[in-house]
């Protein structure tokens, strides 16, 4: 292994880039433990009063509950649809079906605000603004690519002959998928489900457009709060989101890594 100035410089540079990427996130955590009623960094004293505030204020709790509910439903719907789509995409020889892969990933590339305006216009017409169904539908569109990508990757490493073997053994097509294909691609499906949940859980732009005073997700509530009152409760909420999503993303990454090791 080589050591020397070049190597040390590379390390230092990488560390700096890393710090630059996570610094804004890390600033929020001390802010949430401040004892002052304003977002001043660095805090002059410490307290957990903003967490107490968060968990005693029904408006914050409602928003948290809405986010969890929408996120869980999106995880289920997007995982089922995304897995089915990924299986169809890898199976079909049709050029049209193959082309629709790009279409399904489009929500990842199209600017979210464009999607948001489109969704707003549609939802306005069909009375879906501020409804649970509206949130789940809109977030599912955004979450689909995050399911399709890992499931497709898992399917690429899956030996189609296993499915043929299951069929000739007497399994129906669905039976073969359920008993052989799905257990084999489970890590990809699980990681897709976690990413779908996280995508919904921290979605702001589309949510801002389709929210109503009766149904707000946590990020929407935070956005409203930061523009009205600069109360450090928002930092407490942000810290909770950070911890929650970090755990989920690590879990997703871990399931993928473990699958790769098993191979």
């Amino acid at each position: 292994m080589r050591t020397g100035p070049a190597r040390i410089a590379l390390w230092a540079f990488s560390a700096l880039v890393g710090l630059w990427l996570i610094a804004p996130t890390l600033v929020v955590i001390p802010l949430s433990f401040t004892d002052k009623a304003s977002l001043v960094f660095p805090p002059s004293g410490w307290s957990t009063r903003w967490y107490a505030n968060f968990f005693s204020d029904p408006r914050w709790l409602d928003a948290l509950f809405s986010s969890l509910q929408v996120g869980a439903l999106v995880a289920v719907v997007a995982t089922v649809l995304g897995t089915a789509a990924a299986i169809a995409l890898t199976r079909s020889g049709s050029r049209w079906v193959k082309g629709s892969y790009g279409l399904l990933l489009a929500p990842m590339i199209v600017p979210t605000v464009v999607v948001a305006i489109g969704v707003y216009a549609l939802f306005l017409q069909y009375n879906l603004l501020g409804t649970l169904l509206g949130f789940v539908t809109a977030h599912t569109v955004l979450a689909l690519p995050f399911v399709i990508i890992p499931v497709t990757a898992s399917l690429r490493g899956f030996d189609r002959r296993l499915e043929d073997a299951a069929l000739i053994c007497g399994a129906t097509r669905w039976g073969a998928i359920r008993q052989v294909t799905l257990p084999q691609i489970a890590p990809g499906v699980v990681s897709g489900a976690l990413f779908a949940f996280v995508t919904s859980f921290d979605e702001v732009v589309v949510s801002l457009f389709i929210q109503s005073p009766y149904l707000q997700t946590l990020p929407v509530k935070m956005f409203a709060s930061v523009t009205r009152d600069t109360d450090p409760t928002i930092a407490a909420a942000a810290t909770l989101i950070i911890v929650f999503t970090t755990v989920l993303v690590l879990a997703a990454t871990f399931t993928t890594a473990r699958r790769n090791r098993v191979r």
Partner: peptide, 9 residues
């Protein structure tokens, strides 16, 4: 379909 052919492989 293959699963109804009573064939082993």
């Amino acid at each position: 379909p293959p699963h109804r052919r009573d064939i082993g492989m």
